[in-house]
Design a binder for these strands. Structure first.
Lengths: 196, 196
DNA sequence: TTGCACATACCAACTAGTATGTATACATTT
DNA sequence: AAATGTATACATACTAGTTGGTATGTGCAA
């Protein structure tokens, strides 16, 4: 077991615990007991609980969320189809547990934005990134005549993300995967409005 | 100062503290210090912290959210106009602080649904109510030829609520009232799709 | 022999909850 | 009308358990 492994094992479990309990509900003791390590190891890699949260955002959440949206820069194809395919994939791949625990990004946004400005800014970078790359894809679509002329691409991209997060939230309280599917379907219908 | 007043003062402050800090972040000591009362008063009215949270949902959150949606049962007028007017009013009346702290209902849903089944069920009743009364209003609209025939009213109502909560979430991390307005505007555009 | 990667033991601060006391209003009895 | 009982509405003081964080020690590889 080398050093990098331990650090990543810690981060991974912290992410899981935060996903279920929230950052304020995260208990370092619970995680280290789970991993069979001690506080020495934990505080060797992270100076504080806040640092753990920020590392989870930067090293786990941000990469996993932005991977697709960054890829839009090089992607060929109709932007609305690309966005719809991504949303469809989210819906298809979602397990009941994913729905019950909610979107990790959204969870942290709701909990931490008013409490910790560092958290808010890091989370904002992720959501802004999702919106930014979607906006650019739609704008290229307008230029190529695939998306209706006059479309407010930034507003559509922003609402797409909002609708996605909202779909997670409603499904979460209803504990219903099919609710998530229905709402994602409505979001797809919304996007279709802007096809040229 | 009579007894009812004290109980309601406690609940009101608890609501505010939960709104900002979340239920797990709620500190009873902080609230009673704020109110200038003592633990004796608090535990005279509420047997536990959980009971406080559930009372806040039942006595503050549920009435304030369901008032409008229940009123749809007796309302005259085009259902899409009624729903749009309500969303527009939410946007118009929202203060920067409302946006920064987020939607109290959504906050609790995200935080507590996976942690406490009592909370989840109480919160679900509220959200289901919002969706239910909106669905019925749209269905009456279909019957009266105001809403497009064949509209999946339950799906539209559900996504309207999802879009609303999502708009709160995105605006919260962006700390931006105008972001909220833009997203609500897109939600209004979405609803317009279903006008007959 | 120096520094990394941990382990062990410990602590101060906090936090929900409790046990107990008391002042006051109101009803009941005498 | 006076005395007495009783329930309400708190206040005070305390505790047991938890939690993030620290101080210090140790094995080992380079």
């Amino acid at each position: 077991m080398n050093a990098t492994d331990t650090r990543e094992r810690i981060l991974g479990r912290m992410f899981q615990d935060i996903h279920k309990n929230g950052f304020q509900g995260l208990r370092a003791d619970r995680v280290i007991a789970d991993l069979g390590i001690t506080k020495g190891a934990l505080y060797h890699y992270f100076p504080s609980k806040d640092a753990i949260g920020l590392a989870v955002i930067a090293e786990i959440i941000e990469p996993s969320y932005l991977a697709f949206f960054r890829s839009l820069e090089q992607a060929k194809g109709h932007p609305i189809d690309l966005l719809k395919a991504h949303l469809q994939e989210l819906a298809d791949k979602a397990s009941p547990d994913d729905i019950y625990l909610g979107c990790p990004l959204n969870n942290l946004v709701q909990e931490m934005s008013p409490l910790n400005e560092d958290f808010r800014q890091r989370l904002k970078v992720v959501m802004d990134g999702m919106i930014h790359y979607s906006t650019r894809a739609l704008e290229r679509g307008v230029a190529q005549g695939q998306v209706k002329a006059g479309t407010d691409c930034a507003a559509v991209a922003s609402f797409m993300v909002a609708g996605m997060e909202g779909a997670y939230g409603v499904a979460k309280v209803q504990k219903s995967l099919s609710s998530f599917h229905r709402n994602i379907q409505q979001l797809l219908n919304y996007l279709e409005m802007f096809r040229a």
